[in-house]
Design a protein around this nucleic acid. Sequence first.
DNA 1: TTTTTCAATTGATATAGCTCAATTTTTCTC
DNA 2: GAGAAAAATTGAGCTATATCAATTGAAAAA
Lengths: 230, 230
Amino acid sequence: MGNYYSNTCTVNNNNVFCFDELTESQKEKVDANKVTLHYKKGENICKQGSFASHIILLKSGLGKVYLEGNPKNLILKIAPPNSLIGLPSIYDGNNTFLYSASSYIDSEVELIDIELFKVLIQENSRFAYRIINTLNEHTVQTYGRFYCLTNKQMHGRLADILLCLSERIFRQDVFSLPLTRSDLAELTGMSTESVVRVMKDFKDDGLINTDGKEINLLNVEMLMKISELG
Amino acid sequence: MGNYYSNTCTVNNNNVFCFDELTESQKEKVDANKVTLHYKKGENICKQGSFASHIILLKSGLGKVYLEGNPKNLILKIAPPNSLIGLPSIYDGNNTFLYSASSYIDSEVELIDIELFKVLIQENSRFAYRIINTLNEHTVQTYGRFYCLTNKQMHGRLADILLCLSERIFRQDVFSLPLTRSDLAELTGMSTESVVRVMKDFKDDGLINTDGKEINLLNVEMLMKISELG
DNA sequence: TTTTTCAATTGATATAGCTCAATTTTTCTC
DNA sequence: GAGAAAAATTGAGCTATATCAATTGAAAAA
């Protein structure tokens, strides 16, 4: 059985096929109704509870999608390029964003009118089917992350995030991490101090190496085992 | 701002409007392709990882929808009558159930062929739009529950579940609970002993009363406050 | 009714992981 | 390049909540 409780910081399949299903005239409508924006590192892209007038397509950069909380937020996922942000806002009786998003690094974004989006769904059932696909892929990811954060201990959670950053975001065993320890803490639901301590454990055990912002996964096998066993 | 971090054990809107959007001939196809089953208390309705050949409509009874885990499961939601179970299984490349479900009490269920369901979505965009609605309502509930279990302490989590059982499942302040303390523990992500202790705290503080299986919420206001503050 | 099994309760103890405080290292700003 | 601000690290102690063990109560089976 595929273990979907690992590697859960973002969706597996990150292609935005849905627009391929549109007719030429529908594509033109989308193009005519979209706006491109640039965000600097750390800026707010959308705010939970605010009026959701647009679906957001992250073209480049890296987003953080999270629930606002007191005292701490709950990160739902990391949004790599080509992520659609705001889809779950589409349901009757709701016109607000269900979550907030901000940028980890400088990012480029396209805004597509949400009413147009709703019309496209109701006009084009193949487009709708694609959206259902995307929503359900995000649900898989959310379930996996939910399980990870509630049923695993610190070492498992951190191993999980490191693997996910490596496999799904940067797609390399060695990568330069644009996140601070406190970002990692937020992502894993731990304190910053605990992140530092567990990273040190991993380093002492030869599982990873770190040098400044650079992280090198030396023993992916073992990290996967730690992530699975919790 | 509406606080959607409370009252999170099941979806708010539990109507299955989607079938209203079908044409007569589509409805007939559904009727011709469905099977009715009866489950006794505690039986397995679907098993995570197994082949998802059907979408499941819970007609009566009470279901438990959960992720299988070791050593403990993670309950995603309680399914009251008219719940659709298995919708998130619908995405390309997947043909398995993403979660397991079982019955808390004797329950009646209708099985609808999943391939027919996919055809209906691709044929009927208004039906598809309804399904998107339903999926997103479930996402709201999942996010709320995710927040609840990760960011609240025991008293908040238990208050939340009691309120949800009262408001969304039984729709009364006094209800006979068909769940054991250990079911409540599973639902709140606590140990059975902690459930007992917190229930006692609530009783001592005059917030609830219990007599055997019967639970009476005496101070809903205060329980809501406890649920919100965590 | 008696026995067996399961559920609820209570107390004592253990622990994962947090918070707080202090220090060092890195990054940013002028 | 000096100083300031932010990030990373380390140690000590605390706390929420789990686990374990024992007891009582209730329901089911014989």
